[in-house]
Each structure stands twice: as C-alpha cells, then as structure tokens.
Amino acid sequence: MLNKNDVVPLYKQLQEELRKQIQSGERKPREKIPSEIDLAEHYQVSVITARKAVSELALEGLVEKKQGKGTFVAAQKYQRNLQQVISFSEACRLNGAIAGSRLLECKLINADQKVLRELERPDGEQVLFISRLRFINGEPMAIETNLFPITYSFLLNESLNEKSLFDVLKKRSGTEVAISRRTLEICRATQQEAQQLIVAKGSPLLLIRSIAYSTENQPVFVGTQLINGERYQFTM
C-alpha cells in the first residue's frame, strides 16, 4: 500500500506502483487497468490522485486511454534505426525479441519498367517475387514484399519460413546487403492487410519502400514493408 507519511506525493507513489506492475509483466499489454474510482478505493487515495497517476503513466507511453472504453496497458513499441542496414531478424534481436516469418508467395513474375530500371535489368526480363508475413514474438507485425533479379531465382528452392533472407543470400551466393535507399510514408490497411496483421481495416501502417544494394553496389532487391504503425518507433 501507499505511505501517506512519505515525502513522495501519493500520485507519484501510485504511478510507481502501477509502473512496476506493468514492467514486471503482472499487467499484460492491452490489459484494461482498474478505473480511477477503483484505483482510488483500492489504494485509499482521492480520485484526483488516481487520475494524476494514470495521466503521468499515459505521458510515459505505458498506458493508453480509449474514449468510452477505459485505460489499457500500452503494447510494447519496437525500436528501429533506419540508418542501419540490417535484416528484420537482426532488428528483432536488437529489441530482445524473436523474429518469425510465414511465406505467402514465391514466384517469377513479369515486372514493370520502373522495377526493371531500379534492378538494372533489361526490359521484358522476369523477376523473383517473394512475399512474407513477419512476426515478432509470434505476433504478426509486417508484410514484406521483395522483387529480386532473376539471377536470384535459386531462392525458389529455399525454405523461407523462419529464415532471414539476408542470411540465406550470404550463405547461398555470398551477397551482402550494404546500402539501402529508403522512403517512409503512412498508409491505411486494406481489408486483406488488416486480416493478415490482425488490425482494424483503415488502421495506420508504416510503408517503407527500399532499394537494396550489395557491397559491389549492385541492386539486390526492390522491396516494401507494411508495418503495424502502432507497434513501431523509428529513429533516423
């Protein structure tokens, strides 16, 4: 319980108590926390004190207030530095998380002239299309689509579930991705994307478009990542 004789204000004590419950995992992500009235009654403080404690937690990003629904423990935001050229799997490792993937499609397709120019391939040449659903700790987090020059068609015979494409490329062909030109924008989830990422249709997604180059400055792939915008935080 809280110590009313402590020099630390009661709202700060309650804030710290709730923070410990969240950070220890006692209160799970997306779990609804007690109302301010219930908190006030349980910890024997005023509703104003409880409201102040919850508001401070919201400013920290530990809880989210949803109009008409209550206050919920915020889901963890994963960090990623866009200046680093690393795989999705490596980014997960740096966040202390486990990456996963499920192959959606892997096939040869006819590409438009823009893609062929970006890949520095002749008109009319087919490209390898690979689409995967990426997971973090078992939770669907991104839809990843990459277009490779046909010279990488050996990937058709690879099992790409639960594997890092960067690792496969290095092992099979000695190719290392060294440079990536990226653009970042916001889009809204379509019905299909929403179903795959388990979000509401129209939810904000982060769209990253990239052209990746090898250490020899040769195009490796043109790709897009559609990422759950509520769960990721980027630095540059």
Rank of each mutant, 00 (worst) to 15 (best):
L169Q: 00
S101N: 03
N3Y: 12
Y232V: 05
L116C: 08
K52T: 13
S55G: 14
F148V: 10
K28S: 07
L59N: 12
M236K: 13
Q23G: 03
P122C: 06
L59A: 09
E56P: 03
E17W: 09
Q44M: 12
L108Q: 08
G25I: 10
A111P: 05
N137V: 07
E31Q: 15
E120A: 13
F148W: 11
E230V: 04
G223F: 10
Q195C: 09
S203W: 00
Q233D: 14
S55K: 13
A75H: 04
R172G: 01
T183F: 06
E60L: 15
I150E: 10
P9Y: 03
Y43K: 03
N137Q: 13
L18R: 05
L82Q: 02
A53F: 05
G70E: 06
Q76R: 15
Q196A: 09
F221H: 14
E162S: 04
R51A: 12
N217S: 13
C92M: 09
L197V: 04
S164N: 02
E120T: 09
L108W: 00
T49K: 11
E158K: 14
V177A: 14
L104E: 11
M141W: 00
A111G: 10
E36V: 15
R134M: 12
L14D: 01
A194I: 04
A212V: 04
P122F: 05
I109K: 08
R132D: 00
G138C: 10
Q113K: 06
E90V: 00
F154D: 08
P34D: 07
I48H: 06
I22F: 12
L59G: 03
N137S: 15
F154A: 03
A99P: 15
E105V: 06
E64C: 09
E26C: 01
G68T: 13
E26Q: 05
Q83Y: 14
E193Y: 01
Q218L: 13
I211E: 11
F154Y: 12
N5F: 07
E16Y: 04
I150R: 13
V222E: 00
Q126S: 15
R188G: 08
Q76L: 12
Q13H: 12
S55F: 13
E118V: 00
V220H: 09
V127C: 01
E17Q: 13
K163M: 11
T145R: 10
V45N: 04
K4N: 05
R121F: 01
I143P: 01
V168T: 14
G61R: 08
Q83H: 14
R27S: 09
E118Y: 04
P34H: 08
L57G: 00
K12I: 11
A142F: 02
N3P: 05
F166A: 15
V168L: 06
D112S: 05
V199Y: 04
L116H: 04
G100I: 02
K12V: 07
I143A: 00
M141P: 01
I98G: 00
V85N: 15
K4D: 02
K69R: 15
M1N: 07
Q191G: 07
E230A: 12
Q233S: 15
G70R: 04
R80C: 06
K114D: 13
L160D: 02
A97Y: 00
D112K: 02
E193S: 01
L207V: 07
S131M: 09
A99F: 02
R93C: 02
Q113D: 07
G202Y: 07
E64Q: 15
L10R: 06
N146Y: 08
